[in-house]
Amino acid sequence: MSVSLPEQLPARSAPRKLATGVNPYAPAQARIMRVQDLTSEIRLFDLRFTDAALAESFNFRPGQFVELSVLGVGEGPFSLPSSPTRRGMFQLGIRRAGTLTNYLFDHVIEGDFVGIRGPLGNGFPVELFEGQDVLLVAGGLGMVPLRGLLHYLIDQRDRFGRVMLLYGTRTPDQVLFREELESLARRGDAEILLSVDNAQGKPWGGRVGVVTELLDQVSFDVTNTYAIACGPPVFYKFMLEKLVARGFGRHRIFLSLERRMECGIGKCGHCAVGYTFTCLHGPVFSYWDAINLPELIYT
């Protein structure tokens, strides 16, 4: 199977248009088809565009994101934990954190409609990964965009080498997609190592400690492996240099960054770091590009 993805576009290149409409600020309507709690604070929403043609054609690159809005409440950027290899529906993994997300948790139920704009940004350069080993390292909510990439890799399993996932959370009950990950490991599609900062006396078969320590438990050929990291600022602070210390070239490490975003299309300025718009040039950057942008990783 071969999946064609939207092109990676350098910023300030050809004029472009969002799948969800000519006016890039106007959302397309999508329906919430299913809601599942992943943890007490993180919820997985399955969505489908009301417009059937858009629902079927909606294509994105793992690592891209969408803006979800409820008019009158607000709008916010969310990464996609689903893969373009599975069309018709897409998913959003959302943490309760502010006005909009509180509304989504407290008032939005299956069958409701929301607005979606996207896909936005540049995702992972998955073409580079073909024939290579792929090491995913996730911290906390960073698992959400990496789960979309993980699905993309395992849905085309024979096009990639080893698929490894190192994933750390604070406690066992914060592990996202735990059953699914265990199943992937069991069937041999991916090598998965989990860690928690604190097991809190709960049954836990993984490691207890910080996620960077998991790196010491796997061996890999850095000349044939790409590392993809996603997590909070403190995770990047330790993980990225540790990957370099393990021998990864900085151009072989990719990361996805969070910033305040309003427009998602490189206009409003909020996510600008220098003149790089996290929403337009990113949110995926190579580590080399990222360290050359002061403030990009942490302030």
């Binding site: 600020y25 809005s69 009158g72 409440v73 709008e75 309003e262 206009k267 409003c268 300025g269 909020h270």
Partner: peptide, 17 residues
């Protein structure tokens, strides 16, 4: 030219971005 976007509900049954 930076801008902010926020939603408002000026009256019952109306909403604006």
């Amino acid at each position: 030219a930076c801008f902010n976007v926020r939603d408002e509900c000026p009256e019952e049954d109306s909403a604006q971005r």
